[in-house]
Design a protein around this nucleic acid. Structure first.
Length: 897
DNA sequence: CACTCCCGCCAATTA
DNA sequence: TAATTGGCGGGAGTG
């Protein structure tokens, strides 16, 4: 039967081709309408058998080999001819001839000739690497499949990978749009950022069995600051990717491809072994990774690797490890991304149809024609497909499903930078030897210890004016950034975040450029980072305290509150006073976002919708763009309260650049001293500064604070151990943050303010919060255990995962909050509730375990980061969690609407 | 035998 | 319901 089919196929294809091809080829060019379902035309006769066809069949029957050959030939011919696909007949004839001839035997296509890599090359050969911007070439799957002589299924494999890199995007059924490599660098950059977030610091690679290896991703790019450009990128990317990608499920292949690329980008060595990649990429595996699953994953990786190889991004190499030689791939593509250049160049001029501000929207629209839902989804995350994927998974997967978590980070330090370095070092070591890893760990530990003491201090911020958030000027960032592992958001989100900065600034300015010089907090322009400086005051802390249960309830509120602030930040420049400027933006946007997004999800959803709306809404200024980013982020959190946002906006956020600078000073140190936090601390004696990082898309709920100065180091980054977050940051539930004044903007006082208790202005501040989700529970994530002290106890939480300690987030208990609050004033001292990731080092995590954490967190939901269990533990939390989860899910689904 | 990964069944998703 | 997509894993080719 098969034979029969095949034979049929051959004839058939040509036929199709003709019609199709014609249109398509032509179509390739610009004009075509995306919309289409081109294919229709084709199929007319299933069997247009030609005489030859019959022969073929016979032949094939005679020998399978023959068949193959024939096919191949056919395939090739067309290919050779390239576009000529014209003569189907001829093909057939040829085939026939061939069959007769022995050539077949000679050529024997052998498997290699059929390889996906080769096929991909042929595919790529058909399209220009850098197509003119103006036109878009459309790709018809049917057409291509017929031309290349392969089943459509294979084309999907190629296209899906290309799509993950935004080389193509799906326009409609059967139709893909060829973008070429204009955006490739951007995409890679984004992936790198995302990868850093996810895997970043700790890229953990698990090797084999039990060993873990941690890789710490280095942050190559330090500059997060770029935010300006990013936005574009984000959008653009998102567009492309999102549009196409979102459509279905998570599309594992796409996601896998992105993750796989991320691994390369994050890896110092640029070499990733398949098994490690497979382990990391197996999200689900959670506990038991099935061997079969692993195998399957590896198969897929080969598929992806073949395509990437064809793209010249990677090459196959072998790594000899202790265990022996393992297949691996080395990244041979660009390592450094000119940042925007790509964007600017590539995009703007040429390709992007949808560039710019609108882009996101526009794109969506286009796509929308095809499928609304998809788009909608996309919209929500343009850039961050992964996120979506994650969500989906979460929702879908019972196992992994996690709740989201929120965490706010408390302190970070320069240490981060150090940490990073360490991580890198560790990673290297690890790579070299597993054993070495230990060393690194030790180091880390030491660091941690130091940190530990400090744990988090949350910011005590008082609601006061004192705290100001200033957006740091980008320039400043670099320093910090460098240090810190980037948190860049996951794909989609991050981009947005970055992007906004500029515009936002403008608005913010209105309020005041400088809010308070002294302010303890700095806001980073980039949405993603914020630096908080200054001592914290206690007051707010109280607010934070709210019991977990409360949190849950509050969280929502908090969330709502949170968002606004960010916006301001974006404006990196100045955040102005509370004065309204910002407000405008936020509110509208937020509201919209809110509407769109569901609360919890904020991260996920928001983007697009929010973005567009925001932009629109905010008349203001460029801010819009910037805002978007932030907004988006926030949105997630905030859905709640647009109002709040408004309020917030009202309040001056105060971000001043100046302050930043000052802060910067403080913060700066980090890079240099990686090693010991303690030292840093010493150096840092200053006020504690914190960097606030917006949660990556995946992590919507978490807030990260990094202490610039002190280092408590935190965290030393447990990175070593944990893949999860090695970063020295603390994750604090948004709720917690909410209470903090720092948050940004003091300006907001959000009525909503989550924290009833505290309710201070701080409340307003809460904004940050992404809280929505987890908000309630503050969590620390440290890889290592160390850190925290107190909090503790709870961490154990996860019964389930115990084995995989890796990431547990220990949920900080509510109390922790309290504690935190209390401590507050001092950054350091706070008893933060840190949750360490449990596992840290000691136990060798299995890759699986690790993965789960990462993956989930990264991909799926913020919650995923932590152990679900942890969440559970918190009683109140649980509910929340669940709710949050649901929300997410809902959102995802709903958002589209 | 291990590494690759083609092939195509068939489920999920769309149209 | 039909078509499109794409997950998945058996098992074959290659070295």
């Amino acid at each position: 039967e098969n034979i029969f089919d095949r034979s049929r196929m051959a004839p058939k294809t040509p036929i199709k081709n003709e019609p199709v091809d014609l249109s398509k080829q032509k179509g390739c060019t610009p004009e075509r309408n995306p919309i289409t379902p081109v294919k229709i035309i084709d199929r007319p006769q299933p069997d247009p058998w030609t005489p030859t066809a019959n022969l073929k069949i016979l032949v094939s029957a005679a020998s399978p080999d023959m068949r193959d050959r024939e096919k191949k030939k056919e395939l090739f011919r067309p290919i050779e001819n390239s576009e000529q696909s014209d003569t189907p007949d001829s093909l057939q004839y040829d085939i026939v001839d061939d069959s007769t001839v022995d050539e077949f035997e000679k050529q024997r296509p052998s498997r290699k000739q059929k390889s996906l890599g080769l096929l991909c090359q042929k595919f790529l050969a058909r399209y220009p690497n850098y197509p003119l911007s103006t036109e878009k070439t459309t790709i018809s799957l049917d057409e291509v499949a017929s031309i290349l002589g392969v089943e459509r299924r294979r084309i999907y494999d190629i296209v899906n990978v290309l799509e993950s890199l935004h080389l193509v995007s799906r326009v409609a059924k059967n139709q893909y749009c060829w973008h070429g490599r204009h955006n490739l660098s951007q995409t890679l950059k984004m992936l790198q950022e995302a990868g850093e977030l996810q895997y970043g610091e700790l890229m953990t690679l698990q090797h084999k069995e039990q060993d873990f290896e941690y890789k710490f991703g280095e942050r190559k790019k330090e500059t997060i600051p770029d935010s300006q450009d990013r936005p574009l990128l984000d959008f653009s990317e998102p567009d492309c990717s999102s549009a196409s990608a979102n459509s279905r499920k998570d599309k594992s292949l796409r996601i896998m491809s992105q993750k796989f690329v991320m691994l390369f980008l994050v890896s110092k060595t640029k070499i990733v072994t398949l098994d490690i990649a497979a382990k990391i990429l197996i999200e689900e595996t959670q506990d038991t990774v099935d061997h079969s699953k692993f195998k399957t994953k590896v198969r897929r990786l080969y598929d992806i690797a073949n395509v990437l190889t064809s793209l010249g991004l990677i090459k196959k190499v072998h790594v000899t490890e202790e265990r022996g030689r393992k297949p691996a791939f080395k990244w041979i593509g660009p390592v450094e991304f000119p940042e925007k250049t790509d964007e600017l160049r590539g995009h703007s001029p040429t390709s992007d149809p949808l560039p710019g501000t609108q882009r996101g929207a526009s794109v969506q629209y286009q796509t929308s024609a095809t499928g609304k839902q998809r788009f909608t989804r996309h919209a929500s995350f343009n850039s961050a497909q992964p996120c979506e994927a994650i969500r989906r998974k979460v929702s879908s997967e019972p196992n992994s499903p996690r709740q989201e978590k929120q965490a706010s980070v408390v302190n970070s330090d320069e240490n981060c930078s150090k940490m990073i370095n360490l991580a890198a070092v560790c990673r290297q070591k690890i790579e070299e030897d597993t054993g070495k890893a230990c060393d690194t760990e030790t180091i880390l530990n030491s660091a941690k210890n130091s940190n530990i003491t400090l744990p988090l201090s949350l910011l005590p911020a008082p609601g006061d004016p004192d705290f100001c958030v200033n957006p740091l000027p980008q320039p400043v960032f670099p320093v910090v950034q460098a240090d810190v592992p980037s948190f860049s958001l996951p794909i989609g989100i991050s981009s947005q975040a970055s992007h906004p900065s500029t515009p936002a600034a403008s608005k913010t300015e209105n309020g005041k450029p400088t809010v308070v010089p002294n302010q303890p907090f700095l806001c980073f322009p980039s949405s993603s980072f914020f630096m908080l400086c200054g001592g914290l005051q206690e007051n707010n802390s109280s607010e934070l305290l709210p019991p977990a249960g409360d949190l849950g309830s509050r969280s929502a509120e908090a969330q709502a509150a949170v968002p606004p602030p960010f916006c301001q930040k974006r404006s990196s420049h100045k955040c102005s006073s509370p004065s309204a400027p910002v407000d405008d933006e936020e509110p509208a946007a937020k509201k919209q976002t809110l509407e769109h997004s569901f609360l919890p999800l904020s991260l996920v959803v928001p983007k697009k919708p929010s973005g567009s709306p925001k932009a629109e809404s905010s008349p203001g200024s460029g801010c819009s763009a910037a805002v978007h980013l932030e907004m988006d982020h926030f949105d997630l959190a905030s859905p709640v309260a647009p109002e709040v946002a408004n309020k917030e906006s009202v309040k001056p956020l105060d971000c001043q650049k100046q302050e930043k600078q000052s802060q910067n000073k403080d913060s700066e140190e980090p890079p240099p001293g990686n090693k010991h936090i303690s030292k840093e601390n010493a150096s840092q004696p200053f006020q504690p500064q914190y960097l606030y990082v917006q949660p990556p898309a995946g992590l919507s709920s978490f807030n990260f604070l990094f202490s610039t100065n002190q280092a408590p180091g935190a965290i030393s980054l447990a990175a070593n151990q944990m893949p999860s977050l090695s970063v020295p940051c603390v994750m604090v539930p948004s709720a917690a943050l909410a209470s903090f004044p720092l948050v940004c903007s003091p300006s907001f006082t959000s009525p909503l303010s989550p924290a009833p208790e505290g309710s201070f202005s701080a409340a307003a501040s809460t904004n940050f919060s992404m809280s929505s989700l987890a908000s309630t529970t503050p969590v620390f994530i440290s890889t290592t255990a160390v850190v925290t002290p107190k909090v503790s106890p709870a961490p154990s939480v996860d019964p389930q995962q115990p084995p995989h300690p890796a990431l547990h987030l220990s949920p900080v208990l509510t109390r922790s909050f309290n504690a935190v609050k209390l401590d507050s004033p001092v950054c350091m001292g706070h008893p933060v509730t840190l949750l360490k990731l449990q596992q840290p080092s000691s136990a060798p995590l299995t890759p699986k375990s690790i993965r789960p954490a990462h993956h989930e967190a990264f991909f799926k939901t913020p919650g995923s980061l932590g152990d679900p269990a942890a969440w559970k533990k918190n009683e109140g939390n649980q509910t929340r969690n669940a709710s949050s989860v649901q929300r997410r899910l809902e959102i995802s689904s709903s958002s589209p609407d």
